[in-house]
Design a protein around this nucleic acid. Sequence first.
DNA 1: CATGAATGAGTCTTCATTCAT
DNA 2: CATGAATGAAGACTCATTCAT
Lengths: 209, 209, 209, 209
Amino acid sequence: MAKVSDAHLAARRRSIVMAACSVFSRKGVESATMAEIAAEAGLSPGAIYRYFENKEELAKGCMGENAHELEQQWQHAPGPAAAADAMGEFSRLSRLTFSNLNEPDEAFHSLLMLEQILIGVREGGTRLAEMRDGFALTRDGICQRLEIARQAGQLPRGMKPAFVAAALFSFYMGARVCKLVDPELDTDGQLDQIMALLPAITPAQPATV
Amino acid sequence: MAKVSDAHLAARRRSIVMAACSVFSRKGVESATMAEIAAEAGLSPGAIYRYFENKEELAKGCMGENAHELEQQWQHAPGPAAAADAMGEFSRLSRLTFSNLNEPDEAFHSLLMLEQILIGVREGGTRLAEMRDGFALTRDGICQRLEIARQAGQLPRGMKPAFVAAALFSFYMGARVCKLVDPELDTDGQLDQIMALLPAITPAQPATV
Amino acid sequence: MAKVSDAHLAARRRSIVMAACSVFSRKGVESATMAEIAAEAGLSPGAIYRYFENKEELAKGCMGENAHELEQQWQHAPGPAAAADAMGEFSRLSRLTFSNLNEPDEAFHSLLMLEQILIGVREGGTRLAEMRDGFALTRDGICQRLEIARQAGQLPRGMKPAFVAAALFSFYMGARVCKLVDPELDTDGQLDQIMALLPAITPAQPATV
Amino acid sequence: MAKVSDAHLAARRRSIVMAACSVFSRKGVESATMAEIAAEAGLSPGAIYRYFENKEELAKGCMGENAHELEQQWQHAPGPAAAADAMGEFSRLSRLTFSNLNEPDEAFHSLLMLEQILIGVREGGTRLAEMRDGFALTRDGICQRLEIARQAGQLPRGMKPAFVAAALFSFYMGARVCKLVDPELDTDGQLDQIMALLPAITPAQPATV
DNA sequence: CATGAATGAGTCTTCATTCAT
DNA sequence: CATGAATGAAGACTCATTCAT
């Protein structure tokens, strides 16, 4: 019975987090029971406490765990090659992001995210700050791309990238919420219309502004 | 304490609902205790059960209670006078709706709404259906107004009002979520930018502007 | 609003007792609620407390209320005319008593009686003493009749009327219990067999004893 | 406290049942509290729920637990050797059964049994059916023994064993009830008198005696 | 006198957490 | 390290009882 490798331990910890996410998403953090999570993780209830101080810590441990990889793409600075076809790039990433909303496990992620938001807002501590920062980062990523496009003359001078970025992010978040309530919703169609609006400003605005 | 007037009874019931909304919003439905709600309503725990079967029914009873009056304005068919300045009307109502997000108790309402959504989605029964229908009605209200504007030549022929309406509604919902996470957010500024995009599509617009 | 007549009051009190008996029999004293009893009596819960101190007193008030009239017949001393055909008289009353077990509301009475016994035995106070005395009285009534018959030579000298009376009473009580568990039981048939045994001793015993 | 042997678990379960029987008998099922039962079993309230779904199941679990071993003796078919002295055998078992009523914990058992009957009759489901069947089995056992005695000429041809058996069983049940109300009662004396009646029927008997 | 709304103590039951094995 | 039995603190809910109307 030699020391269990750190990798093994990390894997266990991860499997617990996955199980917790699953149960939290399905039942809500408050209604989920440690026993249920343990069962889903293939462990005994007591075992979880070797990896997490208590239920709350476990819930915290689930926080970042389910951020979409796409969010990270947005947060990464756009490549230098992006300038040429800034809006094309932007549009492609946007559509990719929205098309993800049609994935079967999207509700799972959205439910989890909303619950984390509720908890964070109610607690108001570091948890909320982390979220706020995460949201801000993504908005920044959007904003940067819009700014590049604007610099490249693909968007009207008069537009305020920061606000448009924030609006688009809100739109995305709202789409997730709405899709949760009504999975039949065609969020791609919504995006199409919004995207159609964006460059349209271009030719007309410069004159009027 | 017998034979209290029906009005009195209704008022009591309402005060319980208000207290419940307050506690639910602050703690979440699951974490809220009947004792706390009762205390906030100035009653003993047992008294609530004369008005609501159980905690779940009480939570249900809080559902519609906190719909914004503005939602109802949207859902009401637009007045006939609206056609003349359809977009002006639309813009005014939109700004009014968004300006409401700055109210101090907006977080209260948003928290409540999100929790109800979570519960509804998880339950998946009538509760969810009612929400879906409520959302759809509001989207319809938006759509009708856009359609009128389009008919009046104030919006481009090519746009699809239903999708744009859905997008705008998503945008609104997302703005609420984002504002919850970061109350500093200038959602009015976001709306401004989005509203600026709308008429821009119009081929006819450049001439009139 | 003149003083309510005593008769009226007594009638109310009685109606409460009847309702209580009904509910007690159906649900058991502990499970019965004052509200249910009040409803069955056509009153409000609070009203009961003008007639009975509390639930326990009400239960006590139900005690004697449901003794069969037949029990009283047994307890009354046998008429002088009975001697001539003592056993005939005895047999007739016995059969009458047992035939009562076939009445549709017999279960109602037996349930009530058993519950009262349980409560009485557990409390062990006056309540139990009253029951014990009631039972003793009935046994005495049986015994007296047997004794008369024995004196009249209709029963063997050697038999001990007190014990036989007690045995017959036990038999009756047990028959009630058994009939409760299995209403199909032919308790009359049981009595027939027992009655057949009784006088049979007569002609043979004197010789052997 | 993991991995306790099955025997240990069964013992715990049994100790809970014993404690429950004790409290149920003393207070009645409805008035007994889980906390009290737990304390009597030397456990915490929550522990019981690992062994029984809820209070009702626990009460059910107490049902068969307190059947007298003697009942099983009656239910077992009589040995072949019994025929020779069928009535002697019968008389011996009867006296044994009745003498048991003088045991100090007899009231304990009777109280429990009566309460179970009350519950069973009120519920009217499987519980009642099981009781009915149990009673019937015992009556059958009595009946078989009487029949053997009758075949052996120790009882009159004309008697109906089934009815006599039922009557004797009723007598026994009633004796238990009466003894509960008045522990001073000499139930053995009652049995003596009844047993004295039995063979007396026989036309053949006078000769043999 | 009756009403029935309100009280609040008391129960069952759940579940996060601990710890002996 | 894992197990899972046990704990015990809550919390939802009930209902006998009170009392203002």
